[in-house]
Simulated scan of single mutants.
Amino acid sequence: MKKIYTYGHALEERNLTIADMHANKAVGRKMTQVTAQNAQEAEIIADQDIDMIITGSDWYPDVRRGAPNTFITAALFAGRYITNEEILAGAIDAAMKGADSVLTPRSLDVVEMIANQGIAVQGHVGMVPSKSIQLGGMRTVGKTADEALAVLEDMRRLEDAGAFGCEVECVAEDALAAISKHTSLITNSIGAGPAGDVIFLFFEDICGETENPPRHAQSWGDGAAIRRQLDQERRKAVKGFKDAVASGDYPAQGHVVSMLAEEKDKLLEALDKRA
């Protein structure tokens, strides 16, 4: 563990720093990153020694409670923060609460604006979902030399804007292997093969909770089957509740508390007088 001060000047410990990431990149040590939406998921991830967690900025405080010492990135959702002022305020708020970095899919000006405030920031290259309409849909990017070079150019622009890393989504694996040697960014590969410095997957995909997972995902569990079983058990329980109310079996004597006998007599007497 490394002692660090957060952006809000709180003295804490982290499993990983950005300097460590660059040292790992230099020697080819792969790192791992998994999404979390709440403290329960974050605790599971941290317990299994995953290097990094990424979460939405609104979920960050709860996720941090589950993983107090894990490097956590807070993603600034495009629809949550609209203007540059809102984006910067969101980034500062997340950093003040202890987020170790923020991620934004927005413009280079936005990345530079956040970096200029001393906040560790990451961008997003390749198949950025919010830009898929411009790419002809959800598809792999970088299958041609021109597209691969364009991804590298995006990385270099992020470097110039002050980013330390980027999410690389659905890029041809051999394209990333070739261009990653030409960037200093910490690359987080999701659907872009093993050449990324960080291999990244969604928690629900790993746990087998996604009914139709993307091609790049693999599960090491069968959470979907457990969810279906839980759904059936919930349906059975809710029906049981309705049937018990209809039959008069619920609430039963063990579920209620009665008045003191003498107080009930007083109440009935008082009600009779009112009638």
Results as ranks from 00 to 15, higher is better:
A19V: 12
G56N: 14
T104D: 06
L268M: 11
K266T: 13
G28K: 08
A225C: 00
M113D: 05
R234K: 15
M52F: 10
I18G: 02
A99T: 11
L158I: 05
G123S: 04
P129V: 12
Q48W: 15
D20Q: 11
R64E: 08
L268F: 10
D249V: 07
S258K: 14
A94G: 05
I45G: 04
K30V: 07
R157P: 00
W220Y: 15
Q117C: 10
F164K: 03
A192F: 09
R227D: 03
L230S: 15
L76H: 02
P105C: 10
T104C: 07
V102R: 01
K143E: 14
E12R: 15
N188A: 07
V257N: 06
V125M: 03
I206F: 13
R156S: 00
D93K: 11
K273R: 15
G165K: 08
N84L: 14
V121Y: 05
V198S: 05
I50K: 07
P214Q: 08
I114Y: 03
A99C: 12
S247C: 08
A192P: 12
E233K: 15
E153W: 03
E159A: 09
N15Q: 14
V151Y: 11
T210E: 07
I190C: 04
G248E: 03
A177W: 09
K2E: 13
H255I: 01
R156K: 15
D197P: 03
T210H: 06
L267W: 05
A261I: 13
F241W: 14
I53D: 05
H182M: 01
G123F: 01
R215C: 02
T144C: 02
H255K: 14
I4P: 11
A177M: 07
I44C: 06
G136W: 08
L267E: 09
I45W: 12
S57Y: 12
G90T: 08
I72Q: 03
I45H: 11
P194M: 05
V27M: 07
L158A: 09
E173H: 14
L267S: 01
K131H: 14
G8A: 06
I18K: 10
A67I: 04
A261M: 10
E43R: 14
Q117F: 08
E211D: 11
A94F: 06
K242F: 13
A177D: 12
S184H: 12
R215Q: 11
I186A: 02
L152R: 13
W59A: 12
P213R: 02
A161Y: 04
Y60T: 03
S132I: 03
I179F: 12
G142A: 07
A89Q: 14
R139Q: 10
L230P: 00
K25E: 01
Q37V: 08
V257H: 13
I92S: 03
A163P: 04
D154C: 09
G28Y: 13
I114T: 07
A10L: 11
V121F: 04
S130W: 07
V27H: 07
I82S: 15
A270G: 08
I114K: 07
C207K: 13
S189H: 03
A75C: 10
D205K: 04
Q253V: 01
A10G: 00
V102M: 02
A161D: 09
T183G: 05
A195E: 12
G223V: 08
G90Y: 08
